[in-house]
């Protein structure tokens, strides 16, 4: 996995979570790859690692981190980078990623983990800090990594760039790949009041190495409705539509279905994977017909 952000096959996979691990080892579904959260395997030993060995024998892997806190004012934690590097050496994933977000409070105020992917202000300062931290991530692992565009519930005052430029500039300056999460675009566009189609159209498509799909929830408050990126239901129609638009621009890209809360039976998740795969297949058939 050197040189390019991904060597995943351009097919549909899903985020493998604990309740499905033994099922997938016993009866491997007919897919090429799965994605796991890197941090779930940062243990010295035990069943988690042995199960991932078994998964790796059958599937390509994507390592998707949630803990590096690339948007923190501080540089990424060296011990955490070493753990990622060790996991990369052992499991040889086809892709490595984390988020355009921050997770840990500044070291200056104690460095507590907030255990959530938190929003950044759209400022020059934030872009240059992100770019610095992503480069440190790439140098420490020897991989070109991908970063995921954020889902947001609040925006900061005093923006110097708009949300799409913020992502594009970060990817360009860091020299990394983009993990394009189309559900995040839909959620953020609704919550922050920007145009999802315009944002999508301005993404750096040549940098996209993977696409994420997921479900979201609606929560009403006194002022209106917030969409919550809870990964707890089927992909909504509006997000499938955005996905089709994204594919038209990127071509066939490895696509992942995520489901993290109210996790259903594996069959429900695999049905979503098949829907994504049929869209990838249709795209390829369309390309053949046109050429």
């Amino acid at each position: 996995m050197k040189g390019t952000a991904t060597s995943l096959p351009p097919t549909a996979g899903f985020g493998l979570r604990h309740p499905h691990v033994l099922d997938v080892i016993d009866r491997p579904p007919a897919i090429d790859w799965v994605e796991v959260h890197t941090e779930n395997y940062m243990v010295p030993g035990g069943p988690r690692l042995r199960q991932l060995d078994a998964i790796r024998e059958r599937f390509e892997l994507s390592f998707h981190g949630v803990g590096l806190s690339l948007g923190s004012v501080d540089e990424p934690d060296r011990a955490h980078l070493t753990r990622i590097r060790d996991l990369v050496r052992r499991f040889r994933p086809a892709a490595l990623s984390d988020h355009i977000a921050w997770v840990r409070a500044p070291a200056q105020v104690g460095g507590a983990s907030l255990n959530d992917l938190l929003p950044l202000p759209c400022t020059e300062e934030a872009v240059s800090i992100l770019a610095r931290n992503i480069r440190i991530f790439q140098d420490a692992t020897g991989c070109q990594v991908m970063v995921e565009n954020p889902s947001m519930y609040a925006a900061f005052a005093g923006a110097e760039l708009d949300h799409a430029d913020f992502v594009t500039e970060t990817v360009r300056r860091a020299g990394c790949g983009l993990l394009l999460d189309v559900n995040n675009i839909h959620v953020s566009a609704h919550n922050l009041g920007f145009d999802a189609n315009d944002y999508l159209a301005r993404m750096p498509f040549d940098a996209v190495g993977e696409i994420h799909l997921a479900g979201h929830a609606e929560r009403a408050d006194a002022g209106g409705t917030l969409l919550i990126d809870d990964h707890g239901s089927r992909v909504r129609d509006s997000v499938w539509t955005l996905y089709d638009q994204a594919l038209a621009a990127t071509g066939a890209v490895p696509t992942l279905v995520e489901w993290d809360t109210e996790i259903p039976e594996l069959g429900v998740l695999l049905a979503e994977v098949r829907t994504a795969q049929s869209r990838l297949d249709a795209l390829r058939a369309g390309t053949r017909a046109a050429s």
């Binding site: 923190s72 004012v73 921050w102 409070a105 500044p106 200056q108 105020v109 104690g110 507590a112 907030l114 938190l118 950044l120 202000p121 400022t123 300062e125 934030a126 800090i129 900061f156 005052a157 005093g158 110097e160």
Partner: peptide, 13 residues
């Protein structure tokens, strides 16, 4: 405009 350090400190608090 607040710095990122200020924003992240106040957010955590």
């Amino acid at each position: 405009m607040s710095t990122l350090l200020e924003i992240q400190s106040r957010f955590a608090a």
